[in-house]
Amino acid sequence: MTTRDVVFPPGRQALYEQNRYSPAVRANGLLFVSGQVGSREDGSPEPELEAQVRRAFENLNAILAAANCSFDDVQDVTIFMLDPQSHFQRIWDLVQAEYWGEGPYPTVTAVGVTWLYGFQFEIKVVARLQE
Score class of each variant (00 low, 15 high):
38 G>E: 06
103 G>A: 15
10 P>T: 02
100 W>C: 05
107 T>G: 14
109 T>K: 15
49 L>V: 01
31 L>D: 05
115 W>K: 11
58 E>V: 04
94 L>H: 07
65 A>S: 09
92 W>Q: 15
43 G>K: 09
4 R>M: 15
97 A>T: 04
127 A>F: 00
40 R>M: 10
65 A>L: 08
2 T>D: 15
96 Q>D: 13
2 T>N: 14
4 R>I: 12
66 A>L: 04
124 K>D: 00
15 L>N: 12
113 V>Q: 03
1 M>V: 15
63 I>A: 01
35 G>T: 02
77 V>K: 10
131 E>R: 14
100 W>A: 11
91 I>H: 10
18 Q>F: 09
45 P>W: 05
117 Y>V: 14
78 T>R: 09
39 S>H: 14
96 Q>K: 09
37 V>T: 12
71 F>P: 07
56 A>M: 08
108 V>D: 02
49 L>R: 04
46 E>D: 02
69 C>S: 06
118 G>F: 06
14 A>Y: 10
20 R>I: 13
44 S>C: 05
98 E>P: 04
13 Q>T: 02
26 R>N: 07
14 A>F: 08
49 L>S: 05
79 I>P: 06
90 R>H: 12
5 D>E: 14
55 R>W: 06
38 G>I: 08
124 K>R: 08
45 P>D: 01
6 V>G: 12
23 P>W: 04
123 I>Q: 02
88 F>G: 11
95 V>Y: 10
16 Y>L: 11
50 E>S: 01
15 L>M: 12
107 T>Y: 13
127 A>C: 05
104 P>C: 07
89 Q>E: 14
5 D>Q: 13
123 I>A: 04
100 W>R: 01
